[in-house]
Structures are given as structure tokens and as C-alpha cells.
Amino acid sequence: MTDWTGVRDRVLALAAVPGSDKVFGARAHGFALDATLTAAEVADLQAWLDVDLPEDYRSFLLHVGAGGAGPAYGILPVRREGSAGWHWVGELIEEVEPGMFAEVFPGGADPVATVGILGERPLEEEFDDPADLDAALEAWEERLGEVQYDPRRTAGALCLCDEGCGLMVWLVVTGSERGRMWRDPRCNGTDLHPMRDTDGLPLDFASWYLGWLTTTEAACGLDR
């Protein structure tokens, strides 16, 4: 079990440290945290998702907060919007149906679809009119985006963090990668990949979040 004792207070205390606003993303979240969720709310969230959340993220919701201060621009807060169900506030990804969270996370690229669409890129020598080339490239880029951002690519994962410029971070909740963090740089033309620590080991939610907290405290002169 992850021990979150004192973590909420440590995070909130950073707001009062001179210069802490210079930490990347701090001006967005201000080292503020949403209120924690109750056990009943977490149970309702899991029922809505139709998955059991990884223990470290589940206990974070119960003992630290439902979102707010964290790596980059912070943890996207999860909230219930009446009959509309739960959602992560600020999520940039296309909305998906709740049942998709219970599907197995595929991980990485779909090589057949990706290679196929990349091989269809219009070539300059195939067009006499630059306007026709531009139109073809625009249509191709739209199809590429549909392949890259197919919601099935991130089935079984929660979008938890905005790193800026379209870069996102996901927590896998279903499948062999359950409990691990994945970075999403598809906006740069590369693909989703697992996040790892300095020893090359996969990062889980607790390691990712507590690593950020320790590094941030050190940057603010609060070495523990």
C-alpha cells in the first residue's frame, strides 16, 4: 500500500516558498489540490469506469486530492457531473465511452495502420499544381490524425496530465501494463511509450508523483 501520509501538506506548503512559482507548470496549478474523494465517491468512480483503479492512484484520490498540483501542469481533476458521469477536467483527448476503460490497453503503435497511412503520404513529384498537392497533404494529415488518435489506441487508460504543447500522460488501468504511466507525444509525430525511472524501470503513479514532489522540493531548497 502506498503511504501518502503528509504528502498533501507537503504539496500545499510549496505555494508559500519564495520562487516556487518558477517551477515548470506551477503558475497553472499554484500548488493547490482539489479536495479528496470519499470512499463512496471512489467506489462510484470505479463502478462508472467498470475497472478497479491501481491502488496508488486510488489511495491518492482518497488521501491527497482528486487532482491539482503535480508534474508539469498538474493532475487533471476527476469530478462527477451529475447524470453525465465522471470526467477528467481539462482532458484534451476526444471523449470516449466509459466501457472503453475496461478494454485491454493495446500499448504502443498499431504497426499495420500506422505504416499503411505513412506509406500513403502524397509526394511532390506526383502533382503538377502546388494547390493540388496542398489539398492532398491536408486530406492525408487528417487521415493520419484519425489513425494516430483513434480512441482505441488508449482504451484501458486514463489521461491524467497535460505536459504542454499537446503532450499528455496516461495511467494504464487494464491489461498487462496496468498501473504504469505512459507518455503521449503523438502531437510530435512519435508514439505512445512507457515512462521509466533513472534505472530504466517502469514508472507507476506513486513513483511518478512522489518523484516530482521530491525534485520540486529540492528545487525550492526544501531537501528532505
Results as ranks from 00 to 15, higher is better:
residue 3 D to V: 00
residue 5 T to W: 14
residue 6 G to S: 09
residue 6 G to A: 11
residue 9 D to L: 07
residue 11 V to S: 06
residue 13 A to G: 03
residue 16 A to R: 09
residue 18 P to L: 09
residue 19 G to E: 13
residue 20 S to T: 04
residue 21 D to S: 10
residue 21 D to R: 06
residue 22 K to T: 13
residue 25 G to T: 05
residue 28 A to G: 05
residue 29 H to R: 05
residue 29 H to V: 05
residue 35 A to G: 09
residue 37 L to D: 00
residue 39 A to W: 02
residue 41 E to I: 02
residue 48 W to K: 08
residue 51 V to F: 13
residue 55 E to S: 01
residue 68 G to V: 02
residue 72 A to F: 09
residue 75 I to P: 02
residue 78 V to I: 15
residue 81 E to K: 15
residue 82 G to Y: 06
residue 84 A to K: 14
residue 85 G to N: 10
residue 86 W to P: 01
residue 89 V to L: 14
residue 89 V to Q: 14
residue 89 V to Y: 13
residue 92 L to Y: 14
residue 94 E to Y: 09
residue 97 E to H: 15
residue 98 P to V: 01
residue 98 P to N: 04
residue 104 V to M: 15
residue 111 P to M: 06
residue 115 V to T: 15
residue 118 L to P: 09
residue 119 G to R: 09
residue 123 L to T: 07
residue 123 L to K: 14
residue 128 D to W: 13
residue 129 D to F: 11
residue 132 D to Q: 11
residue 136 A to K: 06
residue 138 E to W: 12
residue 141 E to L: 15
residue 141 E to Q: 15
residue 142 E to I: 09
residue 144 L to I: 03
residue 151 P to D: 07
residue 156 G to E: 00
residue 158 L to I: 06
residue 158 L to N: 04
residue 162 D to N: 13
residue 162 D to R: 06
residue 164 G to F: 10
residue 165 C to S: 12
residue 169 V to C: 10
residue 172 V to G: 02
residue 173 V to H: 02
residue 182 W to R: 05
residue 183 R to N: 08
residue 187 C to T: 02
residue 187 C to P: 06
residue 190 T to R: 14
residue 193 H to F: 14
residue 193 H to Q: 12
residue 199 D to H: 06
residue 201 L to S: 02
residue 203 L to G: 00
residue 210 L to H: 11
residue 215 T to F: 10
residue 219 A to M: 12
residue 220 C to F: 09
residue 222 L to K: 09
